[in-house]
Design a protein around this nucleic acid. Structure first.
Length: 766
DNA sequence: GTGGTTACTTAGTACTCCATTA
DNA sequence: TAATGGAGTACTAAGTAACCAC
């Protein structure tokens, strides 16, 4: 298959799939919503479902309350997994029996889903793709050697010489800074340049140093603690809240929560029943008893004045003078300078998120049962500080104290707290450019490269396991095949009712796949349709091997749509097995491996040596896109997409006219030169020629831009670029073809991948 | 084997800022 | 000079997976 073909096919696929996906997104959501609601409603509601909407809502709310009560009363029953599962299955069964009458949805689904298979290339023989040839070239740097990864990790201590050198350098740097501040005679521009140069020279190459022993994350850590959200500022007197048409002054606490809702009034969220219900419940908790007895119906609340006030405020912010904006900018910079960095082992490192999340309303993704709940304000008393014993512990704000100060150098976080919505722990950690994150990232790609070496063996093994006598082994083998072939996520188990109903490979249910012995002229087709991470829909039709198909039929035998497809499997079983096959191997390594290897293959196929730089970059983006499609990285089409495409087209048309004019002028200049035969007219011809060339180039650039943008409409390239693609592949490609790395990675990305930019040469092979 | 907890990576979206254009 | 648009950034939700106790 040629590069072009591949590109075109994948593009068509992408468009089909993306259109499909968005067309049906809402329907899907509706269906999912019904699914959940019905689960809650159980038997009694079966009858009621025929009744009016409002009735249905009321009863479901009651049921929900009952459910919550029983949850609290009888926690033990909740804990028992099998019972739990069985009950879910029962509920799902009921839901299914109800929704089976939903002809409309089914019909539309049949009509709408026509995307071609979206899989990686496979040779015809066995539906199995060969891994690329392994490269035996020695890698330049010692730490790139895979052997390093194979051996059980040796305990390494920091090279004394190096650390001494580092200290020396730092001291010199400090001296230099001092003298620089004294020296006022040097012109500022010069100073800046020098400073920049110096900074570049002094970028710490942690990747050239020894790693710490396994488990030790740092030896010294000092920071200033977190920045708390600004306190609530009460609304001005003239901004009123109305209840049932009458002005009502709210207590500060209730008012603050009301403003959260008012700020979101234009958002679709605030029209959703669950959101409103959750918000109202939590809002009432913040009210005084008087307010509670008055405000009993959210529909009677009028937040419009508040909403307008915030809109006016944001408008005023936009209209601020340059000076005012500058002042704010400076204040932010000051905050960043003070709290945005820490000292970790002799190095100043940037902190990723030093600000504590402000209070507000929880905005889950997809059909989240907790959307609208109040995310409470985090106080110093909620905060755990982590730093080294010999560091200066950050002082809590006056009149407050920390929940705890600990000195745990086996973890990377500086600050943590527990949020109130899911009860999960949130952390303040370092920036991706830091040593601690970079090292981990590098390690991740090294693990994926190790997988490359044994992936053939693993593939042979799971193919064998499709024939196993043990059901558990067969399920494991088929699931692994999907994870490998389709880059599916592992699919951990989730607590029912706590999050949106999304799945990954191991948690797929029977209802998420459809088997077609023949479809679109191909045999043994599996049709996937489920909501994955972030409730992004995964829809794909894939031809599989006969044995896989037969196994799937077996797994689905005597099961209901809401039953687990792989009922003998979970991620922990799968990962334990993978661990036996290769040290450090887990399900997610396959995603990294397949993404990176795909990029490398695609770059080889798509890059045309004679192309100019913009065309080569288009090829790069196409290779990147192939990965994004594989990993199902979608985005909502930008709101201004159509408009901006139209503008671009207008520009292209204008450029075409300009080109036509220029060509005409060139032609007449040539004719003129033929007659006159003098130097002057020759020169004119030359300059006209150049003008044509220049315009041609400009036109080409615009056209490339248009193609790229169109192909990217619903595909997000960033996620794979940042998390799945070994940056050394991109760096090597840039070096090989003389493309400035800035064209591929922006400043932040270059900082994150500094290690790769420094160490990869053009021969690098993933 | 299970459930709970913890630590960390991966993810999409909303917002901000700055360059370009009218 | 204001409007526009797009790249880059901030934010934080939602995953994966390890570990531990039972």
């Amino acid at each position: 298959m040629s590069g072009d073909q591949l590109h075109n096919d994948s593009q068509i696929e992408a468009d089909f799939r993306a259109n499909d996906s968005h067309k049906h997104k809402d329907k899907h959501k509706d269906r999912e919503h019904r699914h959940k609601e019905h689960k809650k409603d159980k038997e009694k509601d079966r009858e009621k479902s025929k009744h009016s909407n409002s009735e249905h809502k009321d009863s479901s709310e009651k049921k929900h309350k009952e459910k919550e009560k029983t949850k609290h009363k009888d926690g033990s029953s909740e804990k028992h997994k099998d019972k739990h599962k069985d009950r879910d299955k029962e509920k799902r069964k009921e839901e299914k029996s109800k929704s089976s009458g939903d002809v409309k949805i089914k019909k539309e689904k049949e009509n709408g889903f026509s995307s071609p298979p979206r899989i990686k290339d496979e040779p015809d023989d066995d539906g199995y793709y060969a891994s690329p040839k392994e490269d035996s070239k020695p890698l330049k740097r010692p730490r790139e050697e895979d052997d390093d990864e194979y051996k059980p990790k040796k305990i390494k201590t920091e090279d004394i010489k190096k650390s001494k050198k580092r200290k020396q350098e730092e001291e010199e740097d400090n001296k230099a800074k001092k003298t620089k501040s004294k020296d006022k005679k040097v012109p500022e521009g010069d100073n800046k340049k020098k400073k920049q140069k110096k900074e570049e020279e002094q970028k710490w190459k942690w990747w050239e140093e020894e790693r710490y022993p396994e488990g030790i994350k740092w030896k010294f850590l000092e920071h200033k603690g977190p920045v708390f959200a600004p306190p609530y500022e009460p609304l001005p007197e003239n901004v009123k809240f109305y209840y049932d048409g009458k002005v009502m002054k709210l207590s500060p606490k209730a008012e603050e929560v009301a403003t959260f809702f008012a700020k979101m009034l234009d958002h679709e969220y605030t029209t959703k029943d669950i959101f409103r219900k959750n918000f109202f419940k939590d809002w009432r908790k913040e009210m005084t008893s008087e307010e509670k007895s008055t405000i009993t119906n959210l529909n009677k609340c009028d937040f419009s004045q508040m909403s307008q006030y915030f809109k006016a405020q944001s408008e005023a912010r936009k209209q601020m003078s340059k000076e005012e904006k500058q002042k704010i900018k400076e204040e932010n910079e000051r905050l960043l300078k003070e709290y945005g960095f820490c000292i970790m082992d002799n190095h100043k490192e940037r902190i990723a998120n030093f600000k504590i999340e402000p209070p507000g309303l929880f905005r889950g993704r997809g059909n989240h049962p907790k959307m609208g709940m109040l995310k409470r304000r985090i106080m110093p008393e909620d905060i755990i500080i982590n730093c080294s014993k010999d560091s200066k512990v950050p002082p809590p704000p006056p009149g407050h104290k920390w929940k705890e100060v600990r000195h745990d150098n086996k973890v990377t976080w500086l600050v943590s707290w527990t949020e109130n919505i899911q009860g999960s722990i949130k952390y303040i950690m370092l920036n991706p450019s830091s040593r601690i994150k970079g090292e981990k990232d590098w390690q991740k790609y090294e693990t994926a490269r190790r997988l490359k070496k044994c992936v053939d063996k693993i593939r042979n093994q799971y193919r064998e396991d499709w024939k196993s006598k043990e059901m558990k082994v067969r399920q494991r083998a088929v699931a692994l095949y999907f994870i490998d072939k389709l880059a599916l996520r592992a699919g951990n188990e989730k607590e029912e009712g706590e999050t949106a109903d999304t799945v990954g490979c191991c948690s797929l249910r029977v209802e998420h796949i459809n088997l077609h012995p023949e479809l679109d002229g191909q045999e043994y087709m599996v049709e996937f349709d489920f909501l994955g991470k972030d409730s992004i829909r995964y829809y794909n039709k894939v031809p599989v091997e006969k044995r896989v198909f037969k196994n799937l039929q077996l797994f689905m035998e005597n099961k209901q749509p809401e039953d687990d497809l792989f009922d003998r499997l979970n991620t922990s079983i799968l990962n334990k097995h993978l661990q036996d096959l290769m040290e450090g191997l887990t399900a997610k390594v396959f995603r990294t491996y397949n993404a990176s290897i795909t990029l490398q293959q695609q770059l080889k196929e798509l890059t045309t040596p004679d192309d100019n730089i913009p065309a080569k970059i288009l090829s790069y983006n196409r290779a990147n896109r192939a990965v994004a499609i594989l990993c199902n990285h979608q985005r909502a089409p930008p709101k201004t997409f159509e408009k901006s495409m139209m503008n671009l087209q207008t520009k292209i048309d204008a450029k075409k006219d300009q080109l036509a004019d220029a060509r005409r002028e060139l032609k007449s200049a040539k004719a003129d030169a033929k007659v006159r035969r003098d130097e002057k007219s020759k020169k004119t011809v030359e300059s006209k020629k150049k003008a044509v060339q220049r315009i041609e180039e400009q036109l080409m650039k615009l056209e490339v831009q248009a193609t790229d943008r169109e192909e990217n409409k619903q595909i997000a390239l960033g996620t794979s670029k940042l998390n799945y693609l070994d940056p050394r592949i991109s760096v090597a490609w840039c070096k090989k073809w003389g493309i400035p790395v800035e064209k591929i990675y922006n400043k932040t990305q270059r900082e994150k991948f500094a290690w790769a930019i420094d160490m990869a040469d053009e021969d690098y092979e993933f």
